[in-house]
Design a protein around this nucleic acid. Sequence first.
DNA 1: GTCTATACCAAGATAGAC
DNA 2: GTCTATCTTGGTATAGAC
Lengths: 194, 194
Amino acid sequence: MARTQGSRAEITGPLIRTHARRLFARQGYAAVSMRQIASAVGVQAGALYAYTPDKQALLFDLLQDHMEHLLASWSDIPGDPLSRLEHFVRFHIDTSLDHADAVFLAYMELRNLTPENFARIAALRGQYESALETILRDGVAAGVMRIDDLKLATMALIAMLTGVTNWYREGGRLDRRRIGDIYWGLARGAVGAD
Amino acid sequence: MARTQGSRAEITGPLIRTHARRLFARQGYAAVSMRQIASAVGVQAGALYAYTPDKQALLFDLLQDHMEHLLASWSDIPGDPLSRLEHFVRFHIDTSLDHADAVFLAYMELRNLTPENFARIAALRGQYESALETILRDGVAAGVMRIDDLKLATMALIAMLTGVTNWYREGGRLDRRRIGDIYWGLARGAVGAD
DNA sequence: GTCTATACCAAGATAGAC
DNA sequence: GTCTATCTTGGTATAGAC
């Protein structure tokens, strides 16, 4: 980044968010300095403050945008509960891989939010979890799933699916479709649908 | 902590480790200062350096001790693969709840280790994962489990079980035995053992 | 909008007295 | 082994020029 002066507001804003997201995810919010983000973007540290009032707001905005995007992207489908669960499983895995940095942030850096900011993100996450819980409840009611405890099954499935971000590497042994197949098999079994 | 002078090596060492573990788990390694740890222990920051050469070594020792304790505590049992899997599930959940801070650290703060330290902890974790993988392989060979992909099933189960630390609270709705029952049901289904 | 320069503070770590 | 005091570095954030 050899540039020394000039205005590029239309691209600097998104760049700051992208690099901050990546750095926060890889090293942790507290371990990343504003100088480091600025350096990745190609501006001086002071310039960041034209886009965010402070570092905390930057983190919160990233998390909030991710959760809102997640909720806006999700839509249940009509049909039987098992098809709807399969749809959720594939959606969650695809999203987790497409937005791996944001997903990782959203459940690792909640502790670095102020209490008010934490409460707002937690509420959004609760909404998302209840989307899955609803499917499981319907599955039990329809007699196509056997589940001892709805809340735990919901948390367990989400933890299992999100775990894909721990080992997935682009260009690895398995493609995404195949990964979805495998996890769907695990999830279907876990809810007693075999 | 009103004490101003004096030697208490026999208790200060363990106290430093306990408080560092708790603080690192709650706020993240990078967000915790040596002064903060010292304050929790009741000594001045300089005194910590009689016990650890630096902050990085303190983190590494906590992770290494946890992984070694985990591996030393685990022992497979003789018997059929399903009983062995049930034993693993209950062991993993009990351990995760007994040592919640260390478990959380061990998979969240790896990124704050130097490359050499990271490699050593990752190797220990690989050993632990292969304990589960062996059980699953035996279960498939014995025809009592149906698993599409051994590696993924191993990672998925561990992620699901470890997730218990995300929501468990002492004195909550469910006791540990019941939690173990529920997760065992989920795991048994996931490996196609119903 | 971005730069350079800097104020201000807290971090990790060390030295030497007790 | 612990304290007090301090060195040095690097952090967040701001001011004012361009």
